[in-house]
Write a protein that binds this DNA or RNA. Structure first.
Lengths: 216, 216
DNA sequence: TAGATTGTTAATCGATTAACAATC
DNA sequence: TAGATTGTTAATCGATTAACAATC
C-alpha cells in the first residue's frame, strides 16, 4: 500500500538498498529474500519490507525479490532514470575532487559545466567539464535550467551564491560549505557537513576511550 | 540527570549546537535561552533542553545558558579539547582537498602526515603535512599511535587498507570510499557517502517535481 | 502440495514535544 | 519580589519490530 508521506528515515535508507542491490546484480545474483538481504545489510527483514511497501509491491510470496527489478524500481523512485542537469559552483580543491572522482551520471545527473571566479581556471577543462566564469552563470541557467547546483565555494560566498542560484531556478543545492543556508523552502538543501561528521567520530572515540589504547 | 546511553540522534545534533554556539560566541553574544536558540536553529526548545540534560546541567533558571560555557561543555563532550592524532590515507584529489581546506585542529585533531602510494607525491608537502610512502605506515603508527585515519583511497583498496589500519590500532575510520567496511566492532566507522547524499537530493527533487520548473 | 516469503496489521520501542514545579 | 527559564516528568507521536494470513 503506497504511502503518501515518506519519512526521512526511509528516504535515507533507499540509496543504501540501491547500492547493495546494484552490487548483487553486478555479481550475477538473481533473487534475494528480505531476510537474507537484511542479514547482509545489518537491518531487519521487517524494516526492508516495511520500507519498500511505502512505494509499492515489488516482491513475490515464496520467492522474494528479483534483484534486477527491485534495483530498477528503487532507481526509479530515486529519480536516477530521469536525467537532470547539474552544475558545480567552485572548482577549488573540493570541486576539483568531485569533478575528477565522482560519477554524477550514475545518479542520473548530466554535468557539462562548472563555474569559478579564478581567471587561471576559467576556460580550462577538468575531466571533460568546462570551467566557466561566474559571470556566465545567469546566461547558462537561462539556457540550460540546471536542477541541482553543487556548492563548493568558500564559506564567505556561500549564502550569496545560494541565493543567486535559487533566483535562477535551481531546485536543489548540494551544500559542502559548512554554512547553514537560508533559502526558500521550495528549494531542497542537502548538507555535507564534514566538520559535523568528524565530530561525531570524535565523540564516539572519546566516550569509548580504551585506556590501554589511549595515545595522542 | 546524566544518561548512560546516548542515542545516535542526540550525538548527531551536538556538532550543530556546537557550531551555532561557536558562531554566537564569536559574534559576542553572551547568553541565550533554549527557546531563542531553538527558534534560530529550527528545533524545539524542549529538544535542546532534553538533549543537553543527557550530559549534565549547564543552564540556569530565569537566565538561560552562558554561551561561552555551554560551547566549552559541548566541545568537551565531543572531545575537541582532548587532542589526538589523525592521518590521511590517500592524497589524491579528495585527500588533497581535505589537506588544503579542512581545519582538523578545530576538531581537536593533530595532523602531520598523510600517506600515499604515488611516487610523485611521496616526499612532498601539502599545507604543512608531509606525504609519506604507505610502506612507512607501520613504522609511523608504532611511533605515533594515530587515533583516527581518514580513508580517501580508491574503492578497490578500501577494505584492505581499513583492515591494515585497524591492525595498527586505529580507533576510528573516517570513510570517504563509498564502500561498506567490515571491521571489528570496537573500531568506529563514520561514513561520508557522497553518492547516497546526492541520491536523497535526487529523490526529493523528483517527488516534488514542479511541472513549471521541470527542465532537464 | 509443502515450504517459503511476501505485504500488512498489531505490538513495542524509542524519540520528540508538552507541561510544570523548582528556582534563579 | 515577579518574570523568566531551567531540568525533568508525563504525554504524544512516530518508527521499528514482530506476527501472521495470504499466496506464490
Amino acid at each position: 500500500m503506497k504511502k503518501q508521506h515518506i519519512s526521512d528515515a526511509v528516504v535515507r535508507r533507499l540509496p543504501r538498498y540501491y547500492r547493495y542491490l546494484d552490487e548483487l546484480h553486478s555479481r550475477g545474483v538473481v533473487r534475494i529474500s528480505s531476510s537474507v538481504l537484511g542479514k547482509r545489510m545489518g537491518v531487519t527483514a521487517s524494516q526492508i519490507r516495511q520500507d519498500l511497501s511505502c512505494f509499492g509491491e515489488f516482491g513475490q510470496q515464496g520467492y522474494g525479490y528479483n534483484i534486477m527489478e527491485l534495483r530498477a524500481e528503487i532507481g526509479h523512485i530515486l529519480g536516477v532514470d530521469e536525467p537532470r542537469r547539474l552544475i558545480i559552483i567552485g572548482a577549488g580543491h573540493l570541486g576539483h575532487a568531485l569533478l575528477q572522482n565522482f560519477d554524477f551520471a550514475q545518479g542520473g545527473f548530466r554535468l557539462d559545466t562548472a563555474f569559478d571566479v579564478s581567471e587561471a581556471l576559467i576556460g580550462t577543462e577538468i575531466n571533460g567539464v568546462e570551467i566557466h566564469s561566474m559571470d556566465e552563470l545567469e546566461d547558462y541557467c537561462a539556457r540550460n535550467h540546471p536542477a541541482v547546483a553543487v556548492l563548493t565555494v568558500p564559506k564567505a560566498a556561500a549564502q550569496d551564491t545560494a541565493a543567486r542560484l535559487v533566483a535562477l531556478g535551481v531546485r536543489g543545492l548540494w551544500n559542502f560549505t559548512n554554512v547553514e543556508l537560508a533559502v526558500d523552502e521550495s528549494v531542497f538543501v542537502e548538507n555535507v557537513h564534514f566538520a559535523d561528521s568528524l565530530l561525531t567520530l570524535s565523540y564516539r572515540i572519546s566516550k569509548n576511550a580504551n585506556p590501554e589504547k589511549r595515545w595522542p
